[in-house]
Amino acid sequence: MKHVVIIGGGIAGIETACELTDAGHWVTVIEKESKLGGKLNNWSYLFPDFTPVEAIKETLHEKSDKKDFTILRETVVLSVQRSSNKFAIRASGNQDLEADAVVIATGYELFDARRKEEYGYKIYDHVITSADLENLLLPENDVNSVLKDTPKRIAFVHCVGSRDEKSGNHYCSKVCCITGVKQAIELKKRFPETDIYCFYMDLRMYGKHFEELYREAQEKYNIQFIRGRLSEASEKMDKSLQIKAEDTLSGRPLKMNVDLLVLLVGMEAGRGTASAATTCSVDCEQSGFLKTADSFLKSNVSNQEGIFLAGSCTAPMSVNDTILHARSAATEVNNWLKAN
C-alpha cells in the first residue's frame, strides 16, 4: 500500500484524501488547526444558491468519517526531504513520516484590508470585510451588532486587494464579484428598506447561475451597481461613513454617506502556501500561488516529481472549483503511483 501525505485539511485536502483512500492508498492529512474544513468554517451561505455551509461541511465530514485515513491536527510540516523514491517528512511534535507522494493543499489567505489604508479598515467602526460580514451572517451571530439602527445605505467595494497594482496583486480573485452579489442580497433580505450599492470595476459572473443571480439582485432586490472604485472613506461625527468614488459610466465624481461599508477582500497565497513552497521546494508564480506544470492537462502537477497540488494554493477558486480540482489531483496522484 502506498502512503500519501496531504498538507492541509481544508476542503481540497479532505476531498483529495477521500478519493485517494477510495483508490486503496494509505493517506495522512496534516492540518495546522484543530478543526478540519479551513476557511469554510467561517462562511455562512454559499453562492449562487445560498446553500448553507453547514450542509456542505456535514456531507464532507460524513464522507471523511467513513474513510480510513489519518489526520494529524495542530501539526505543521517542518521539512520534506526526498530520499530515493520516498519523501521523509518531519512534522511538529517530533513526528517523522515517510510518504510515496505528497499533495499540497494549503489553500489561501484573505487579503488584509488594512493594507488599503484609504478605506480605514480596523480604524473606522463601520468598515468591515466580506469575511467579517459572512461571520455576522452565521446563525449564532447578529449582523445588527455592527449597526445602531436600521441602516439607510450600505455600500460594497469590489476588488479590495485584487486587480490592484498598489496592493501588488495583479490577478483577479474570481469569487469576490459573486460573493458581493450574494451578500448584498442577504443584507437586502434582512433590511428591505436599506439602499444597497456595489462599487465595481468589472463584474465577472463566470459560473453557472452567477449571471442570473446578478440580474436578480438588480431586478428583484433593487441593488444598485456603480462602475467605479472608491478613492477614500472617512468617518463622520455620528460614525457613519462618507465615501468618495467616480461613477465612470456617467463620468462624474460621487460622494455618499453610508452606514456600513463592506470590503470584498480578495485571496492571497498566504503564509501556509509560502511555507509549503519552501519546505517542498516547489515553484511559485509571481502572485505567490504555486506554479502548475501547465494550465490545461497538468494543473495538479508541480515542478517536483511526486509532489502534487490541490485547490486554491494554485489560484483563487470557488468551493465547487476547489472540490473538482481536488478530485483531479487525486486522479493524478493515483495514476502516478500506479506508474511508479
Partner: peptide
C-alpha cells in the same frame, strides 16, 4: 474611530 488601528499604520 479605533486609535489602535491608527497606531498600527503609524
Amino acid at each position: 474611530m479605533k486609535l489602535e488601528g491608527k497606531k498600527q499604520v503609524w
